[in-house]
Simulated scan of single mutants.
Amino acid sequence: MSAQRVAVVTGGSAGLGRAIVRELADRGWDVAILARGEDGLAGAVSDVQSRGRRALAVPTDVADSAAVDAAAARVEAELGPIDAWINNAMVGVFGEFLNTDPADFERAMQVNFFGFVNGTRAALARMTARDRGTVVQVGSALAHRGIPLQAAYCSAKNAITGFTESIVTELLHNKSKVTVSQVDMPAMNTVQFNWVRSQLPDHPQPVEPIFQPEICAAIVVDTAEKPRRRVWVGSSTVLTIIGNRFGSRILDVYLARTGYSGQQAPDVTEPMLADNLYEPTPGDQGARGAFDDKAKSTSVQMWAIRNRPAAYTAAAAFATTAGVLAVTALASLGRRATK
């Protein structure tokens, strides 16, 4: 990787993307931000520049493949070769599938899935020629387990998983040094839940437990700097993925009972923002949403994946101690039995 590192973040003007932009700049990266809203883009540029790094805002609808490729060309012309491309942009449609306008569903898929396809294509077209670079797909626990009221989002995240697996195998076949990672996220306290297009009677909310976007952003940047094929963020993500593999029917029933109320917050009375499905929402909304009082800043699982050597050492020490105690207990029982 070059001494002057360049990253692209799609959807970097708000929510998790904004937190990723800040984290990258804190670690010395120059950052290009691809998003639609001019106010959020300006805020993200200011965040990067205040940290002493170069920033470039490129107004882009990631659903437009030609626009994404043109944005990548501009980034390389103005900032230099792209070292990391982070696909993160998303829009939301909350409501039952049969009540969702087909055009809204398709628009969500265009952004949430084809936006990742377009970003990956633009990145790989440049990275494979140099035989270096990394792409990070921001996935979700919902890539592995669909829930009610979010059929479009769950479909897109599931499709990203299959798409990424195909790309990884092609890169391996061609013996490329370019890497593609997928980082699956838990529920986060982001502005997403203030500007989704929603049919719900109450304010949308992420399914608890909820995490602050900054800790999740740190793990995304960890992955960009030290690529790993898959990263599951948060114990809730791990339990969701593994639980669905072994008890999908149980989860069907459980989510049918709890998935509606669990995604609504009747106690949140602040009005929703204008949705951003087709047009950007005015204003600079930053990274966090309306659930600071419920959101966690870390977890044991998150600490462990960020500190793997220490976690492995602790696990080995625990296993060794447990083994010694077990042997001691068995020996004691043996002595008593011979008396």
Rank of each mutant, 00 (worst) to 15 (best):
S2L: 11
G15H: 01
G17R: 07
V21H: 02
W29L: 04
A35E: 03
R36M: 12
E38A: 15
A42V: 07
S50L: 10
R51F: 01
A55F: 10
A55V: 13
V68R: 02
A71L: 08
A72F: 15
R74C: 03
I82G: 00
N88K: 05
M90Y: 12
E96V: 14
N99S: 12
A103N: 02
D104V: 04
E106R: 13
N118C: 04
R121E: 04
R121C: 03
A122W: 05
A125V: 14
M127E: 06
M127S: 03
T128V: 15
R130Y: 11
R132H: 14
G133T: 05
V138R: 06
A141L: 04
R145H: 10
P148L: 00
A151V: 11
A152I: 04
K157G: 06
E165I: 00
T169H: 15
L172P: 00
N174I: 10
V178N: 06
F193R: 02
V196Y: 06
L200I: 13
D202S: 09
P209R: 02
I210Q: 04
P213H: 02
D222W: 09
E225P: 03
E225A: 14
W232C: 05
W232H: 12
V233D: 00
S235I: 12
T240V: 09
R245W: 11
I250H: 08
Q263M: 15
A265M: 13
D275E: 09
D275C: 08
N276R: 10
E279M: 13
T281A: 07
P282M: 11
G289M: 00
K296D: 06
I305C: 05
R308H: 11
A310V: 13
A316S: 09
A316P: 10
A316W: 14
F318N: 00
L330F: 04
L333K: 14
